[in-house]
Amino acid sequence: MQDHQTLKHYEITNDTTIYLTLRVRGGSVTIYILDLDLLDPHFDYDFTNMKSSGETYMRGNFKYNRPYGWRRIALKVLNKFDDNGWLGVKKRVTNLESVEGEWIVSYHGTANFNANSIADDGYLLNKGKRFVFGRGIYSTPNIEVAASYAEEFYYEGETNKVVFQNRVKPIAFKIVSDGSIFVTDNDRDIRPYGLCIQKV
């Protein structure tokens, strides 16, 4: 928190849980805590020791770059919206192809203090501050690009990074920066559904 800001500026109210970051001279250590009620462990998937076999996966008729080297923790999003088609819950003929109504997969790296808010409320465009490629929610089809925007955090004696895995509504975003960035104009058209964690 900055000295000149009030609690209201940070949307801190009587029922807000505050997590503290210990800062030490010469660096900082962040201890990351996520509300367990936001998670859906049944859909977790561990890509940590997996590598690409050269196959092309499609989601929302767009190439899906699986988060190899990361562990995905699922967010509780099933039945959160009008229907679940955006998640691709219809039966796939093969795991490589898209299904009708499915949204595209993207990734978003952010500061750790934003994680609980994004996991609970989704992306809120009115909280955005920097819009290099125009106003919108920024994400990327490449988890390594997203990781470059993610802060490190400390958990059980190890340093990690966390990146959100999202679904983006097809044709509701523009592609910029040589295809590495998606800009979604409406925050209702991008939905986080997982957290990808990697030891660094």
Rank of each mutant, 00 (worst) to 15 (best):
R71D: 01
V93C: 09
N84D: 14
K91I: 05
I73F: 10
G69P: 06
A74N: 11
F43D: 03
K63I: 13
N79A: 10
K91Q: 08
R92L: 09
W70E: 13
E100P: 09
E100K: 07
K91L: 00
K80C: 07
K91V: 09
K76H: 08
I104E: 04
V77A: 01
Y64I: 01
T48F: 05
Y68H: 12
P41A: 12
G85H: 15
H42P: 01
T48K: 14
S53L: 11
L87N: 05
V77G: 10
A111G: 10
L75W: 05
R59H: 06
N79S: 13
G101R: 05
R72S: 05
I73W: 09
S52D: 10
G54P: 00
G69V: 13
T94L: 13
S53G: 04
F62K: 13
L75N: 06
F62W: 11
N112A: 10
P41R: 02
A74M: 02
F47N: 06
F43A: 11
R66V: 13
W70I: 00
F43Q: 02
L75V: 03
S52W: 09
K91M: 06
V105W: 06
H42T: 12
A74S: 10
N61E: 15
S52A: 06
D44L: 04
N65Y: 09
E55F: 14
R71N: 03
P41V: 02
I104Y: 02
S52E: 10
L78P: 00
V105K: 07
N112I: 13
V105Q: 11
L87S: 08
V99F: 07
E55A: 15
Y45V: 05
I73L: 02
F43I: 01
Y45E: 08
N49Q: 07
S52M: 03
N84W: 14
D40E: 10
F43L: 05
R59I: 01
F43C: 05
A74K: 01
Y107Q: 02
I104P: 00
E100C: 08
A115I: 15
E100D: 15
G85E: 14
Y57I: 00
N61S: 07
T48D: 07
G109L: 04
K90T: 03
F47K: 00
Y107H: 13
K91G: 13
T94E: 07
G69M: 02
S98M: 13
R59A: 10
I104Q: 12
G88A: 08
F62E: 10
L75E: 06
G54T: 02
E97V: 15
K90A: 11
D82N: 03
T56M: 04
A115S: 13
Y45M: 06
D40I: 00
E102W: 04
L87D: 04
D46S: 05
G109Y: 12
K76L: 12
I104D: 02
D83E: 15
W86Y: 15
G69L: 05
V93I: 15
W70S: 02
D46M: 01
K91F: 07
N112L: 10
F81W: 15
V93T: 14
E97F: 12
R59M: 07
K91S: 05
V105T: 15
D46Q: 04
K51D: 00
R92K: 15
G85M: 13
F113K: 08
V93H: 07
K63Q: 00
G88I: 11
V93F: 15
L87K: 14
